[in-house]
Amino acid sequence: MRITQGCFSFLPDLTDEQIAIQVEYCLRSDWAIGVEYTHDPHPRNTYWEMWGNPMFDLRDAAGVMMEVDACRKAFPDSYVRINAFDSTRGFETVRMSFIVNRPKAEPTFHMTRTEVAGRTVNISMTAVR
């Protein structure tokens, strides 16, 4: 199963050159870049681990790509994503987010539906490796 979260998730994986082009677009838009990783790509897991601090003052895509490569090397069997933050309104808003690394074997999810009182249905999802 292929995890589909963020921009470009239904496309084939982006090459490093294509990732750098997207980072350049973000930097031209004055968006700060953050790199995050996780072992748990559950759809409700929105808080991934940060790889260093967000790069608010960086103006070169090569610096972001160095951080992405370092994160990939440190966590080769994890998901790594790039987030682009816009702070023009005085608070951080995610403008773009996309996955730049995937583990070799992606987990699948099993959904369990349980009927409870009345017409209520509880749904739970568990990762299956």
Rank of each mutant, 00 (worst) to 15 (best):
D30G: 14
A70F: 07
Q22T: 02
P12L: 15
F75I: 03
W48H: 04
Y47A: 14
N83V: 13
T93Q: 10
R44A: 13
D86H: 06
S78N: 07
I3G: 02
P54A: 02
Y79R: 02
M50I: 08
M55R: 04
W48D: 00
I99S: 00
S97D: 00
V35L: 04
S9R: 05
F98N: 03
N122F: 15
I33A: 01
D16M: 01
T108N: 08
I33Y: 01
F56L: 07
E106G: 05
H42I: 08
N122C: 11
H42C: 06
H39K: 11
M111H: 14
R119A: 11
E17K: 11
S124G: 07
M65Y: 04
V68A: 01
C71I: 05
A127E: 13
R28V: 05
T112K: 12
G90E: 11
V68F: 03
I123V: 10
W51P: 00
E24H: 13
Y79M: 01
D60E: 10
D86W: 09
M50N: 05
Q18H: 05
N101L: 03
T108E: 14
V128L: 14
N101H: 10
T88F: 10
P43D: 14
H39Q: 15
D69W: 07
W31V: 02
F8Y: 09
Q22R: 08
T88A: 10
P107N: 06
V23R: 00
N53P: 02
F8P: 00
F10S: 12
R2N: 08
I3H: 03
R59W: 11
D60T: 11
L58A: 06
S29D: 13
P103F: 05
V64D: 01
V121N: 03
G63Q: 06
R2A: 12
R72L: 02
V23M: 04
D57N: 08
F8R: 03
Q5A: 05
T114D: 10
V64Y: 01
I123H: 13
F85Y: 07
T108Y: 09
A84K: 01
D16I: 09
A117N: 12
E115L: 15
D57Y: 05
I33E: 00
T93M: 07
A127K: 11
A61Y: 04
V80F: 00
E49C: 11
T126F: 12
F109W: 10
R28Q: 14
R28M: 14
R95A: 10
R129Y: 12
S87E: 09
K73H: 08
A32V: 08
I99K: 00
Y47S: 14
A127R: 11
L58T: 14
P43T: 14
F8A: 06
T112P: 04
A105K: 12
E17G: 09
I123C: 13
G63L: 07
R95M: 12
E17D: 06
V80E: 05
F56E: 13
V100T: 05
